[in-house]
Design a protein around this nucleic acid. Structure first.
Length: 586
RNA sequence: GGGGUUAUAGCUCAGCUGGAUAGAGCAUCGGCCUUCUAAGCCGAGGGUCGCAGGUUCGAGUCCUGCUAACCCCA
């Protein structure tokens, strides 16, 4: 419809040019907008306001001239000049009715499009260290990332969802050692737990499992473990030195094989928990990508070799540096430490190199906002690897601040003081949690009031949309109970009986769904889809209160039922896309 | 000190990329259930769009400078 109107305008402007009224050669980009206010019609254009400047006339006069030569079209029943020089278009309702038939025919497919043209997109999100359960902060990234991925798929991209598992590095060693120490407690040893160890209950559970399955196989007397180990922080030492010494001691006493065994039980235990958690949250991945794999299969060396070949690496102070500052980063970065170990950044370079080699047209990384300083160096790495860094899109998600009874909830994985995503789901439910997270723009700092979410779940806006869906279902049940049959064809043939203001408004809102979906997808803004669904729900509720659907007049009844079923379909399509349930009754 | 994000109603947030009288939910007040589900609808009050300039027919939206909050980096 937009294109039709645009064509009419272009035609009118061209004819003004040939008749010499307009002396400009430049045709500005014409914008046709849907009107917010129904009094302004269905579409409006500001072309006269834009052109007035070059034509050196006042906008209203120019608009009148455009109106005079505007071609007539069946779909447009009225055109009027308004305000400072807007041209408003009123669309023939007969054209609008067609959307009901379209929605009926396309069903679940309605709204989907092919503008992604099958381009391969990878969306990597959450990627939390597997050192503990996901907390509510991760929930936002999970909800946002999964909806972004689903939206892109809906508009025709080929999407791969990926979780990067940081299963290498010091944090994992700290976890493995924490597990082992808790295990020693299970064996009856008594000692103060390291201040820098992981203290969550889940560590104890993993230790308990190991003890159950392997009894005292990994036991060492605590005196041996702590022999000649420097003091922990509470005793005046350094907590990092202390935990690192314990890690080395664990490796020595257990031997590499047994250490790996404990390590793997810890890692797998937590990873399984994360996978289950996300799956129950409606988040599914095609790939869980292991950082350790990059180390093991030589990917890191390969990527660094590539940088070296491009002369981007140099040695200084015993370490190997990447000259990222040549490529837009603020300073150079270490990739291999003095002790020969790769930095996190080295694996990240290898990881992005690997992504590039997998042939994605677009790579989307979704990170917590605290990682924003990381973007320039990753871009630098991509350029150094010879890639076009515009392939990389980094989307940042701001942290949600948790409040409970007016007090900030502390969040620290190490101390074990945090609200898990699982707890949140148990308290407010999957649907409300997803909806709440996806409702907000990702860059918006967000307050999450847990006490409100728990005590007043009825106020959560997700119910508003679900209720609209359930109401339609209820109407259809009532139809059955009244012994009436729904005549689909008759309803389609009599759509022109839908003349009430509410009905016309609903038609135009339903028509907007594909646009809303595309916009939400291409701008990575799931909240736009949610706002749209709230609009649909609102207009439906209003309609519901204003008119009875199950009326005696069968022709009108069937027409209204067709409209209402179209509403049901659009709500379902949107909710299913958001991985939110569509309850038939509430 | 450098950088990022944010600032809109009492609270939580939208604002369709520069358009017409700045919107919703919650909260407050007043109406609507013998009629398809009241988790709903209708109405009212509530605003210096952080502050000060600038760009133009037109600015919550764009540019500059401040201020504050959160977060990275030294």
């Amino acid at each position: 419809m937009k294109q039709t109107i645009e064509a009419l305008i272009v035609q009118a402007v061209e004819s003004l040019k040939t008749s010499g009224v307009l002396e400009t050669n430049t045709l500005p980009t014409i914008t046709i907008e849907r009107c917010r206010d129904p009094e302004h019609g269905d579409f409006a254009t500001n072309v006269a306001l834009i052109l007035a400047k070059v034509a050196k006339t006042n906008p209203r006069q120019l608009a009148e001239k455009i109106l005079a030569v505007l071609p007539v079209h069946d779909a447009v029943i009225k055109v009027e000049l308004a305000g400072p020089g807007f041209i408003n278009f009123f669309i023939n309702p007969n054209v609008q009715y067609a959307i009901i038939q379209t929605i009926h025919e396309l069903g679940r497919e309605f709204g989907l499009s092919a503008i992604g043209a099958g381009k391969k997109v990878q969306v990597e999100f959450v990627s939390a260290n597997p050192t503990g359960p996901l907390h509510v902060g991760h929930g936002r990234g999970a909800a946002y990332g999964s909806v972004v991925a689903d939206l892109l798929q809906a508009v025709g991209f080929e999407v791969e969802r990926e979780y990067y598992v940081n299963d290498a590095g010091r944090q994992m060693d700290i976890l493995a050692t924490s597990v082992w120490l808790r295990y020693l407690e299970e064996c009856g040893e008594v000692f103060p737990f390291p201040s820098n160890g992981y203290r969550g209950d889940y560590v104890r559970e993993i230790a308990w499992t190991i003890h159950k399955n392997s009894a005292n196989q990994y036991h060492q007397p605590i005196a041996t473990v702590l022999e000649n180990i420097p003091a922990d922080e509470p005793q005046g030492g350094d907590k990092d030195v202390y935990i690192d010494a314990l890690i080395e001691r664990a490796k020595t006493l257990l031997g590499l094989e047994h250490y790996r065994a404990v390590f793997q039980v810890g890692l797998q235990g937590i990873l399984q928990d994360i996978k289950a958690d996300l799956s129950e949250f409606g988040v599914n991945y095609q790939c869980w990508f292991s950082e350790q794999q990059l180390m093991d299969d030589g990917s890191v060396e390969k990527a660094l070799a590539r940088l070296r070949a491009g002369d981007y690496l140099y040695e200084k102070d015993g370490a190997t540096w990447f000259a990222s500052s040549q490529l837009g980063d603020e300073k150079d970065r270490v990739v291999v430490r003095e002790n020969g170990q790769y930095t996190y950044f080295a694996s990240d370079i290898a990881y992005h190199h690997h992504k590039l080699e997998r042939g994605f047209d677009q790579i989307i990384d979704i990170w917590g906002a605290d990682h924003h300083g990381y973007i320039p160096r990753v871009r630098a790495a991509m350029r150094a690897l010879g890639a076009d860094d515009s392939k990389l899109t980094v989307l940042l998600v701001q942290f949600a601040i948790l409040w409970r009874n007016g007090v900030k909830v502390p969040m620290s994985t190490r101390s074990g003081e945090f609200v898990t995503l699982r707890q949140l789901r148990n308290e407010v439910g999957k649907d409300a949690a997803r909806f709440f997270y996806a409702m907000r723009r990702s860059e918006q700092h967000m307050d999450f009031d847990l006490s409100l979410a728990v005590s007043k779940t009825n106020e959560n806006p997700v119910f508003y949309v679900q209720y609209a869906y359930a109401r339609v279902c209820s109407v259809l049940r009532q139809l059955d109970e009244k012994g009436w049959q729904r005549n689909l064809q008759s309803g389609m043939d009599n759509l022109n009986l839908l003349t009430a203001e509410h009905e016309i408004a609903l038609l135009s809102t339903l028509t907007r769904y594909p646009e809303a979906l595309q916009k939400a997808a291409l701008q990575y803004e799931p909240h736009q889809l949610i706002l749209y669904l709230r609009d649909v729900a609102h207009e439906f509720h209003t309609y519901y209160n204003a008119h009875q659907f199950l009326v005696e007049d069968a022709l009108l009844r069937d027409a209204r039922l067709n409209l209402v079923c179209a509403v049901k379909q659009v709500l379902a399509n949107g909710l299913i896309l958001l991985a939110i349930n569509t309850p038939e009754s509430m």
